[in-house]
Nucleic acid binder design. Structure first.
Length: 886
DNA sequence: CGTATCACG
DNA sequence: ACGTACGTGATACGA
């Protein structure tokens, strides 16, 4: 039987766009020696390899758009009229993409007056007719209308290699229509990015419904007269011409006058000499290595690095010299407080040393070297190595380069604990991921082949060493070098010491709460069963939904994608309908306290009676910390029931106290600073109640005495809304007022704080132009969706553009304070210990006699962390437990 | 392993 | 018209 021929068709322009933006954050590091940007070419190559491997085609064609003028613009002048010009950094790469395809032996093609879509549509039809299995690769969904039994359309998702396969079945499942009907849907809803309107007031939802009902635009109009009178019917009738024109524009041609046939698309495979020349021109060194002839197919792709077993005997030799060395302590799991050490490695590219026993960490020679600040170390995750070393009595000084931390500062996205994937983000492909070597989940283990294991450690060490120059250069290009050296790098050590210190938690206090909660939960459970008439799992939203909305016939206020919503907001609206609602609310509240806080925290107390959380310094997109295993940044506070948990958090020595300081309204102060708003700055300079001040402004009051509690509450929500990147709908939902009124609040707000309004507009504009926003300390967040054609994505990016500089600058400020605080405690020889950070709050334990010192010292360090145009304000308190700190 | 819910700033 | 507040982590279900 002859093998089926496989045809791969690639939408060159849209895949190039995706490639460009997938590696947009690496734009600065992907420049060849001639100053040419190469990020899109690099990512395009990887996308191409990925799809070639997946499809293994016999024939390939890449189609490009020939220009702006096409038969569609002749039919409708505004077609794609609002489309932004291709960025220059991408346009300059197009000739190299063409060269790359030539070297791959892949035919590429463009046709005057037609779009790439039409070339693909025509060729796909021909291929299918010839009995070929056709795969289309594109970055947008327009082409999915071609999907059929023989044609699969792969659409790129995020990143370089993730794809979504559109088949007729997938269409049915996802949208409830056939691929062809997508054209009809677009005829009605129009296409914003292609700039044709469809029918007035008809969006995706409505269009889908209409097509599911009528099947096609033609049939819809055949029956439009029978529809019952409505605004929509009127719009449909008025816009009939536009609907049919839109349908025509949306239809991908399958009869474009292309001048090549299937025979021209035969894929012979790459020309390695041509590829080598191109890679040299583009400085794609990692790809050049891949081209090197392999002696036999079974040989490892990575050539072996020079490794010696690290022993007590050869430590002096291994540690000789003052040149920088990479160092690592390897563990299989995340939690470095407890995880066994499986290897210790160090060295330089001349010679790597790897020990597979943890005992080496107790060697005095190694401990001396680790403690010596003059011995320069490169690591991946300083805090992880520091804490692990501490378990063996070692202290690490002299950490110069932390690849993980630097990578996070360069681009906050996806800095996992996996060195291999972080390396890949920076174009370094010479190292495997841990998942590939150790496996994942239950099967995670040290490889059976010891040589494979040791080479993996060596390759990781080498990777850190090799990436150092490039990443430090990138930091400098981003003006982030001092953010790294003066803020994040020292902070890692401060955090390590907080984690090591841990906080004492009294198990008996938690257990007593657990006993009482258990009884109360049992009572509530029985009452709920009585009301419901039978037993069920209250924790199952599905079963609860059935009881409330099917059996008891309560009105379902909201739906989720899987069924009825039973969230607090919904239940509160049902309060008066049945006594069961209050019982469920109470049950939920207590069950949360029991499972997450009583049982959860109990299971995390170490043998030393303390909880040692991990602060994740390289995760959030704004620069905040996060806290894991357990999360000590979300211990209950707002309701007294849950707040009791805090009584279990106590000082670790008798006669000591818990001391706490927090910033007052730090985010709004940051907003007053960055916006330069005179009215808001004045309020803070005069130490006024900012929410009451806002209330006076938006309610047009003349005297503070006129501000009611409710006005202040609404003003407070509005202040928050501004920080989050306001929308009238969001505000209206939050405080339960009509949308119109929320809009009036916002308008009044912007009128009273005009420079805040200017700033929100300015920051969005800046984000659009440069693709990222920054905090006061140059922390950077990329916003690739800021120019997205998808409205939701774009608006989300716009809100983020407003929120991140505020939340992120506040994070910068407390981080500076933490570093200064750790230094001050050391300088003044205080026993007080910094234990926790909760975003705008620092928590300490200290001997009672040091409390008066802290009451002066902590606020003075915190409010002088940075100099803003408004003062920072800090409130402090102390007590026997965390609960008593209020 | 994704979803819903709810704890924090 | 469209669908929306920003940033996190832990737990319980249920496929």
């Amino acid at each position: 039987m002859p093998t089926t021929k496989k045809l791969l068709l690639v939408d060159g322009n849209s895949v190039a766009f995706r490639a460009f933006f997938a590696m947009h954050s690496a734009l600065d590091s992907f420049i060849n020696r001639d100053g040419l940007h190469t990020n899109a070419t690099f990512a395009f190559k990887r996308m191409l390899d990925n799809i070639l491997e997946q499809v293994d085609p016999t024939n390939v064609l890449v189609a490009f758009d020939a220009g702006k003028v096409t038969f569609r613009t002749k039919k409708f002048e505004e077609y794609k009229g609002t489309r932004a010009k291709m960025p220059g950094e991408l346009a300059e790469q197009l000739p190299f993409l063409h060269k790359l395809l030539d070297a791959y032996g892949i035919k590429w093609y463009e046709l005057k007056n037609y779009e790439a879509d039409d070339i693909i549509g025509t060729m796909a039809q021909e291929g299918a007719k010839a009995g070929m299995a056709v795969t289309v690769l594109s970055g947008d969904r327009d082409l999915t209308q071609l999907a059929s039994d023989q044609i699969t359309v792969q659409v790129t998702l995020k990143g370089v290699t993730e794809l979504e396969a559109y088949t007729p079945a997938h269409f049915q499942e996802k949208l409830g229509i056939t691929p062809k009907q997508l054209i009809d849907v677009k005829a009605l809803m129009g296409d914003n990015s292609d700039n044709y309107p469809g029918v007035t007031k008809v969006g995706e939802k409505t269009a889908l419904k209409l097509i599911q009902e009528y099947g096609s635009v033609e049939n819809l109009y055949a029956h439009v007269a029978d529809m019952k009178k409505s605004k929509m019917k009127e719009n449909l009738i008025n816009d009939k011409d536009m609907a049919f024109l839109s349908k025509d524009l949306a239809t991908i041609r399958t009869d474009a006058p292309i001048t090549l046939g299937l025979a021209d698309t035969v894929y012979p495979g790459p020309d390695n000499q041509a590829l080598l020349a191109l890679y040299q021109e583009l400085d794609f060194n990692s790809f050049i290595k891949d081209l090197a002839p392999q002696e036999d197919d079974d040989a490892p792709v990575q050539k072996d690095l020079p490794v010696t077993a690290l022993t007590a005997a050869n430590l002096p030799q291994a540690l000789a010299g003052d040149a920088p060395k990479t160092f690592m302590i390897e563990m299989l799991g995340d939690n470095y407080h407890t995880e066994p050490v499986i290897a210790v490695g160090l060295g330089t590219p001349d010679q790597w040393y790897v020990a597979t026993q943890d005992a080496i960490l107790r060697e005095p020679a190694l401990q001396t070297w680790l403690a010596d600040a003059q011995k320069v170390k490169y690591v991946f995750d300083a805090k992880r190595n520091y804490v692990a070393a501490h378990r063996f009595g070692a202290t690490i000084n002299g950490i110069d380069f932390d690849m993980l931390l630097v990578s996070y500062l360069l681009n906050t996205v996806d800095n996992s604990n996996d060195l291999g994937s972080v390396a890949a983000q920076h174009g370094y492909t010479g190292v495997e991921t841990d998942a590939a070597v150790y496996g994942t989940g239950k099967k995670r283990q040290v490889p059976d082949d010891q040589a494979v294991f040791i080479q993996h450690i060596a390759h990781k060490l080498a990777c850190v060493y090799n990436l150092q120059p490039q990443l430090v250069k990138d930091l400098q290009a981003h003006e982030q070098y001092t953010l790294y050296t003066d803020l994040e790098r020292p902070l890692a050590i401060v955090l390590a010491n907080m984690e090591i210190a841990g906080i004492k938690v009294l198990p008996d206090t938690l257990k007593a709460m657990g006993v009482s909660l258990k009884e109360r939960l049992q009572d509530l459970e029985n009452q709920i069963y009585t009301e419901a008439g039978h037993e069920f799992n209250i924790n199952s939203t599905k079963q609860l939904g059935t009881v409330l909305f099917d059996e008891m016939k309560l009105p379902p206020i909201k739906k989720t994608k899987t069924g009825y919503s039973t969230s607090v907001a919904v239940l509160e609206k049902l309060q008066d309908e049945s006594p069961i609602i209050q019982m469920i609310l109470s049950y939920r509240q207590l069950a949360k306290i029991q499972s997450t806080y009583v049982e959860g925290l109990l299971s995390q107390i170490h043998p030393d009676g303390k909880i040692h959380t991990r602060y994740i310094q390289t995760l959030t997109q704004t620069g905040r910390l996060s806290s894991q295993d357990p999360n000590l940044q979300n211990i209950p506070m707002h309701q007294d029931e849950g707040k009791q948990i805090r009584k279990a958090f106590v000082p670790s020595h008798p006669g000591w106290q818990i001391f706490d300081s927090d910033y007052s309204q730090v985010e709004l102060r940051v907003l007053a600073h960055v916006s330069g708003d005179r009215n808001m700055q004045e309020a803070f300079k005069e130490n006024r109640d900012i929410h009451a001040n806002t209330a006076m402004k938006i309610f047009h009051l003349t005297d503070p005495s006129q501000v009611t509690d409710n006005m202040r509450r609404q003003a407070k929500a509005t202040n928050f809304g501004i920080v989050y990147g306001i929308s009238d709908y969001g505000l209206s939902q939050n405080i339960g007022i009509p949308r119109e009124q929320a809009k009036a609040f916002i308008d009044a707000y912007f009128e009273q704080y005009p420079q805040v309004k200017d700033w929100t507009e300015q920051i969005v504009k800046t984000a659009r132009e440069q693709g990222y926003v920054e905090t006061i300390m140059h922390r950077r967040r990329y916003l690739p969706d800021i120019n997205a054609k998808n409205r939701n994505l774009r608006q989300f990016a716009e809100r983020t553009a407003m929120n991140t500089p505020i939340q992120g600058s506040a994070a910068d400020i407390i981080k500076v304070a933490m570093i200064n605080m750790a230094q001050a405690l050391k300088d003044q020889h205080l026993q007080a210990t910094m234990l926790l950070q909760v975003h705008d709050e620092l928590l300490f334990e200290a001997p009672r006699e040091e409390i008066p010192i802290l009451e002066k010292l902590v606020p003075s360090i915190m409010d002088s962390a940075v100099k803003l145009a408004v003062p920072l304000k800090v409130d402090s308190s102390f007590g026997d437990t965390w609960y008593d700190v209020k």
